[in-house]
């Protein structure tokens, strides 16, 4: 729902790293998004393709998205399970004393740049 907001964070970070490394053109940026981070991939890419034109260095930067699996931990039976399939209820023991181990990440993993820039 706030893809546009995070797009500007990404743009700012990519621009900063490009400047620090004296890069003139960024070919792609890879972001890692957890399965339950509430970010819609298609919308993020749409926002990115609009916003990237605002900066010279990102004008043609492709956004690549890698999905990270969401895993929940059960405090009662100590089991781990896939969050997307079972939600807050542990499929092994039925407990709701569970918490998300991982899967709400939203990271910039890397950017790719031409060697000659």
């Amino acid at each position: 729902m706030h893809e546009l907001g995070v797009t500007f964070y990404i743009l700012k970070d990519v621009k900063k790293v490009a400047e620090e490394n004296d890069v003139k053109k960024v070919n792609y940026v890879t972001v890692e998004i957890g399965e339950v981070s509430t970010v819609i991939h298609d919308q993020l890419i749409d926002c990115w393709n609009w916003a990237r034109k605002k900066e010279e260095v990102t004008k043609e930067t492709e956004m690549r998205i890698e999905t990270l699996e969401a895993v929940t931990y059960c405090e009662d039976c100590k089991g781990e399970y896939r969050t997307v399939e079972y939600g807050k209820t542990c499929p092994y023991c039925g407990s709701e004393h569970t918490y998300l181990l991982r899967g709400n990440e939203f990271n910039i993993k890397e950017i790719g740049v031409d060697d000659d820039t």
Partner: peptide, 14 residues
């Protein structure tokens, strides 16, 4: 192609 690793959360600055 050179790859620059960032590995940082998008919300870090915030």
């Amino acid at each position: 192609m050179t790859i620059l690793e960032l590995k940082q959360g998008i919300f870090k600055e915030n």
